[in-house]
């Protein structure tokens, strides 16, 4: 039994989510092969070969795969996937875009966003925005699975020594073309990879006040997130959103500032190890999940927190 894991990367560096997905593969058990598909992605392949537990790195380096468009990548992955018992990808936007297309080409059903491996056929996954956990068993010949990173502790990025094999056969099907992208540039860690997250909600009142959170975040080496209410109010961009409709995070420390704690927000952060809530409304639902709650005006408490750190 061998497991194919699709590596997430930007042709320059291997994304952390790959390591969580390899961890899920290791729990299923079997030979783990990591697919690096991209263009001029040799550096990623080198990094992938170092990942603990990976026996083989398969590299598909072709201009048609430069932006990993699902139309061009899915045929390659599905052709490859026929030789495996499991095909796994991180449940990131890239994985979510690609994997169902692969599953349909393989004519098998997919299991989305697993958070736990029971055995090689049985998995747990959240449904209804995390308000219920389903245990699902698959009798499909090939199990196609997306992995929620927060459910699995990452394997070590170094220590492995996988063989690197080159794949050929990629082509541009001409169905889709990359036009451009706008990536938010930030010195701070990515939300889904951060050990500490400071998030602001509607209580921040406006986008400028998020500067308070950036100050504290930089002292803690933290990422900055936001509730959907803050995003919808236009305080901050959508890619900062933590919640069922945004990013699912599980850092060591999550500090919720001026966030009431709507169900959809809780679904995105309730697996954090330690949750701190700062809110002036002592009835706010966020306090029901917080390990440490501080009933205070955030405009006084946050600067004070900055001084105390």
């Amino acid at each position: 039994m061998a497991i194919l894991v699709i590596a997430e990367h930007d042709n320059a560096a291997l994304a952390a989510a790959t390591l969580n997905t390899v961890a899920a593969a290791a729990q299923i058990g079997g030979d783990i092969h990591l697919l690096v598909a991209g263009a001029n992605c040799a550096a990623v392949a080198e990094a992938a070969a170092q990942v603990a537990g990976v026996s083989t790195v398969l590299v598909a380096d072709h201009p048609a795969l430069a932006h990993q468009l699902a139309e061009n990548l899915a045929p390659l992955v599905s052709a490859l996937g026929r030789s495996y018992s499991h095909v796994l990808a991180p449940a990131t936007t890239a994985g979510k875009n690609l994997l169902p297309r692969v599953a349909a080409l393989l004519d098998v059903e997919q299991i989305s966003e697993i958070v736990k491996v029971i055995d090689a056929d049985t998995f747990q996954r959240p449904i209804y925005a995390g308000n219920a956990i389903a245990t699902v068993q698959s009798s499909a010949a090939i199990k196609v699975i997306s992995v929620r990173g927060t459910g699995f502790d990452a394997v070590a990025a170094e220590g492995g020594n996988a063989a690197i094999e080159t794949l050929t056969g990629a082509e541009d099907l001409g169905l889709s073309a990359f036009v451009g992208e706008e990536l938010a540039k930030s010195e701070r860690p990515e939300l889904t990879a951060a050990k500490v997250i400071v998030s602001g909600g509607r209580g921040m009142q406006n986008g400028d006040n998020f500067a308070l959170l950036y100050g504290v975040a930089d002292q803690l080496g933290a990422a900055v997130g936001a509730s959907r209410a803050a995003v919808d109010a236009g305080f901050v961009p959508n890619d900062m959103q933590v919640g069922q409709t945004g990013k699912i995070v599980a850092p060591q420390l999550y500090i919720a500032v001026g966030i009431s704690g709507a169900i959809q927000h809780l679904a995105g952060m309730k697996d954090s190890k330690v949750i701190v809530a700062i809110n002036k409304d002592e009835e706010a639902p966020i306090f029901q999940v917080a390990d440490y709650g501080l009933v205070a005006d955030l405009f006084e408490a946050v600067p004070e927190l900055g001084r105390a750190l």
Binding site: E109, I111, N131, A132, A134, T135, K270, I275, F287, A290
Partner: peptide, 15 residues
């Protein structure tokens, strides 16, 4: 080919 064996409430997080 998929079978739902059970559906449970998530582990509650205590205040």
């Amino acid at each position: 080919t998929l079978k739902t064996l059970k559906v449970e409430a998530p582990a509650a997080r205590s205040a």
